[in-house]
């Protein structure tokens, strides 16, 4: 199945680097739309949620747009493939402790905690990851490749949903999660040059073949 125009939705809630994600999808030879309405979500087969921003602010915006609960229902459906990037991945979890305590979409079990163990925060720059064997996102990507990270908070969750870890300050930090129709990456594939585009392509291929 090939995607047509409105199949791929880049969720735009007013914060975050929307343009780069659109550019990356276009670069894989696909078109996409941006939007944040229930109509946009209904029309979509794939939702990519880019994230630059603070957790609480993003939750507030999703609620103001009236799509917080709607997104949960839609994603539980398993018909829609979802890729959360950075904050977009963190929002999938139950709660976050970034500037207070905030409830997330709770589609994945776990919480978002500050990486207090590190001497320097944020964790910013290119870092190599360790991938588990059955990952969809990292298909055909060389082991120990570098990706671009920029975050101070990270997911703390059961390792069964984690598809890759990154080492920061001597600790294993969740770099990506994969569960059924739900995918999330802590790093920025849209900013990780060739290999990052490959990850977006791998995700879209998986969604296409579903």
């Amino acid at each position: 199945m090939n995607f047509i125009n409105k199949d791929i939705l880049v969720l735009n809630i007013g914060i975050g680097n929307i343009q780069s994600v659109v550019n990356a999808i276009n670069h894989t030879g696909r078109s996409c739309v941006t939007g944040s309405s229930k109509i946009d979500i209904d029309a979509a087969k794939v939702i990519i949620f880019p994230g630059v921003g603070a957790f609480g602010e993003a939750v507030k915006l999703l609620k103001n747009l009236g799509i917080f609960e709607y997104l949960i229902t839609k994603l539980l459906d398993k018909d829609i493939y979802f890729l959360g990037i950075c904050l977009g991945m963190q929002l999938l979890f139950e709660k976050s402790y970034e500037h207070g305590t905030h409830q997330g979409l709770a589609l994945l079990e776990g919480s978002i905690m500050k990486m207090d163990f590190a001497e320097t925060l944020p964790h910013v720059g290119w870092n190599n990851i360790d991938v588990s064997s059955n990952s969809t996102l990292f298909y055909n990507i060389e082991e120990s490749s570098d990706f671009y990270f920029d975050h101070s908070y990270s997911a703390v969750c059961d390792s069964s949903i984690v598809s890759s870890f990154v080492d920061y300050s001597g600790k294993k930090v969740v770099a990506s999660v994969e569960k059924d129709n739900i995918f999330g990456v802590q790093f920025h594939p849209e900013k990780s040059q060739f290999l990052g585009l490959k990850i977006i392509d791998n995700f879209l291929k998986k969604a296409q073949s579903a």
Binding site: V52, G53, A54, E57, L87, L121, S152
Partner: peptide, 9 residues
């Protein structure tokens, strides 16, 4: 700015 966009930005 950091409250809206996050420190990392």
């Amino acid at each position: 700015c950091s409250e809206i966009f996050g420190d990392q930005s």
